[in-house]
Design a protein around this nucleic acid. Structure first.
Lengths: 232, 232
DNA sequence: TGGTCCAAAATGTGATCGCAGATTCGTTCC
DNA sequence: GGAACGAATCTGCGATCACATTTTGGACCA
């Protein structure tokens, strides 16, 4: 490409970040899902979304198809896309599968986490506790995501990371919904904050311990929500 | 719908199975992938495929997008879809993740398998051994798929089943490629045939034993291919 | 023979159109 | 007042077109 420069090559390059529209739409929708901006049962029609986004149907259709392929959306018999409701059965099932994948990823992460990664994890853990004390649900969910995926990314397995991402894409939309049912009272969640201890185990290269603690985090969060949350 | 029948309601219904074109194309492509009909590195362009299938680009585009969302296809910087090559690293990674998910599914399947399911599994296991003795790779791969997914489906976890399916969608295309490298000599694979024993453990409600055997099946198949197969 | 350059074909992307089936909503009739 | 009907709208689906960029292929020249 830069093999020869014929005429004048004037200005210093500006590496314009260009990406297709359907990619942008996909990211927007994915973010809207993960941050719980869409209520379950909500029908997502390509035409309406397109009008809302100021594009044609096509990029929206593409984005919806991709999300449906990942089971983040359900397809009605007529082809419409719906944000599926979270039933007790589905929540149970998703949590069970999380319990299979995420501790395993944690166990494998311990060998790959370097000093920098551990430092960052500790920082996020601190911010996480602070957010919980401040009753700041948004910050809590965000930092919780960053904390967990800081570990899972470090495990160095692209395929496992991808599987966990698809699980979160299904669970994520509802965490905020659940939280909102507690009058912003996060005390119940605060009581099961193992993040600091997990970091400690990771620092000690105790993969098994870290995995076990993370499993408890998932298990107890699961139990707490099954007890207290309202399902469809 | 059947609330009232106005005029004559003539013939006995024929429940016509109607499904969108892009769904059909998706299934065709998925099947072509899983059965190893496409060589890695192969570029899949929507226009060519559309001409080949006799449709317009649109249904093909949709199908390709869905497959890419599941990581069954890679996207080149220019947006073209490619069947990704199987490197040693990727194969290692995928097998590692399979070792996390599939024994877990097996462990959970033992409680849900009824007499009918076990009988069918045993039949498939017999056919599997026969196919291996006949050096019939196609039949072997097909029955192997049916055997494993007979177990995974029984485990009753839709989310876990989905994760395993996405893993197979990535590994599947290459199993035949690998097999073809051995001059259709399946003896190496025959030596590690645990299927009958797995059925036996399942019948004995020994989930742990079945899971361990299945893990060995994956692990030894993995080792065998890492030793003997040619990668990209 | 090997490299360069330009024209032609191919390709991703997105918009628009048309169709058929589904949905919605207002009217009408009992 | 409520159910039944019908028209208007909505919506998924697929085809086709347009455009910009990339890729390809071949001619031309050193």
């Amino acid at each position: 490409m830069e093999k020869h420069l014929k005429k004048q090559d004037p200005i210093g390059l500006s590496p314009v970040e260009i990406q297709p529209l359907h990619e942008i739409v996909y990211e927007r929708l994915r973010h809207a899902l993960m941050s719980g901006q869409l209520e379950p049962g909500r029908k997502l029609t390509s035409r309406k979304l397109a009008k809302e986004l100021g594009t044609s149907d096509m990029p929206v259709r593409s984005a919806l198809l991709r999300l449906q392929a990942l089971h983040a959306l359900d397809q009605l018999p007529n082809g419409s896309m719906v944000l599926p409701a979270m039933t007790r059965e589905r929540f149970d099932d998703l949590m069970m599968t999380r319990l299979i994948c995420e501790p395993a990823a944690t166990r494998r992460a311990v060998a790959a986490l370097d000093r920098g990664g551990l430092l960052k994890l500790r920082q996020v853990a601190v911010a996480l506790t602070a957010a919980a004390e401040d009753q700041d649900i948004d910050a809590y969910l965000l930092h919780n995501h960053d904390f967990k995926f800081g570990i899972y990314t470090a495990c160095g397995s692209p395929s496992l990371l991808f599987l966990i991402e698809t699980l979160w894409l299904q669970v994520g939309p509802f965490l905020r919904q659940f939280s909102g049912q507690f009058d912003n009272d996060l005390r119940g969640i605060l009581e099961l904050d193992y993040h600091d201890e997990i970091v400690k185990r990771l620092e000690d290269r105790d993969g098994e311990g870290a995995a076990e603690l993370l499993a408890r985090d998932i298990r107890e969060g699961h139990a707490y929500l099954m007890e207290n949350a309202r399902f469809e």
